[in-house]
Nucleic acid binder design. Structure first.
Length: 256
DNA sequence: ATGGCAGGGCACCCCTGA
């Protein structure tokens, strides 16, 4: 069983790369996508199904948009955070192979003095409250997505450049800590990993070539699943493509 | 040095991302 997350920064542009990556990963069970940037009537459902996959999605024009692609049937689909009034399409959840798989595109926040920053913190609170109830029903749960939070300084290429900004602020890291405190494990940190492991690199200033990146895409898993984890890997290959997404996939592998 | 790149919408420039 393998689950992955990838912010594709426009599925319209990246669909061929997504299908190529899925073909290169035949053991992958399901993939969570963020920033599809497609309204539902434009979503490439037929192409994805023609390639042999199941898919569910929730999108809007220009911004945000999430989807889950799966090799096995998808059940119990929920869009957005129940009880939280938000016009932005940032969450889709489904049960796949007995796992409650949540695909989330957590707000960026833009800047500490922006209106988008309190929106981000409130959004994280709502997510955490809802997760509490989900966890009561689903011992096997994965919260996968673009968190827009670098949890620790080692998740940042140069902390002096980011300190005092969004993605690394104490309040955001505390919100990440509250998710972990629900009993979740950061799958990537469950293993020895290379130093300077990142999932996003700025398009500008040769960010990828200089490995000037951040680790902001994560899979948090319940204890039941953490016990089955055998690996967690950032796959940097898609970031080397022509016209790459600025994010690259992260993959968690589970045994029996 | 606050810029640099990319995508989308819309109109030839602006917004957002991280």
């Amino acid at each position: 069983m393998q689950f992955a997350t990838w912010n594709v920064n426009s599925l319209k542009v990246r669909l061929p790369q997504v299908l190529d990556w899925l073909a290169s990963r035949p053991e992958l069970t399901a993939l969570a996508l963020q920033e599809t940037k497609l309204e539902d009537h434009n979503f490439p459902q037929a192409e994805i199904e023609a390639a042999g996959f199941h898919v569910v999605y929730a999108g809007q024009k220009t911004y945000n948009g999430v989807a889950i692609i799966s090799r096995v049937p998808i059940d119990e689909v929920v869009v957005n955070i129940p009880g939280f009034d938000d016009p932005q399409k940032r969450v889709i959840t489904a049960t796949i192979a007995g796992v409650r798989f949540i695909c989330a595109y957590i707000p960026n926040g833009q800047a500490l003095d922006s209106d988008k920053y309190p929106y981000k913190l409130g959004w994280l609170e709502a997510l955490t409250a809802w997760l509490k109830t989900e966890l009561l029903q689903h011992p096997q749960l994965i919260l996968a997505g673009d968190y827009n939070i670098a949890p620790e300084d080692r998740d940042v290429h140069d902390i002096t450049k980011w300190e005092g900004g969004v993605l690394v602020s104490p309040a955001e890291r505390e919100a990440f800590g509250k998710l972990v405190a629900l009993g979740l494990t950061d799958a990537f940190r469950a293993f020895e990993q290379p130093e300077k492991s990142f999932t996003w690199w700025d398009y500008r200033m040769l960010g990828f070539r200089r490995n000037a990146g951040l680790r902001i895409d994560h899979l948090l898993v319940t204890a039941t699943l953490a016990a089955k984890l055998t690996a967690c890997e950032i796959d940097k290959e898609p970031r080397k493509n022509e016209r790459p997404s600025d994010h690259t996939p992260v993959l968690a592998v589970f045994g029996d």
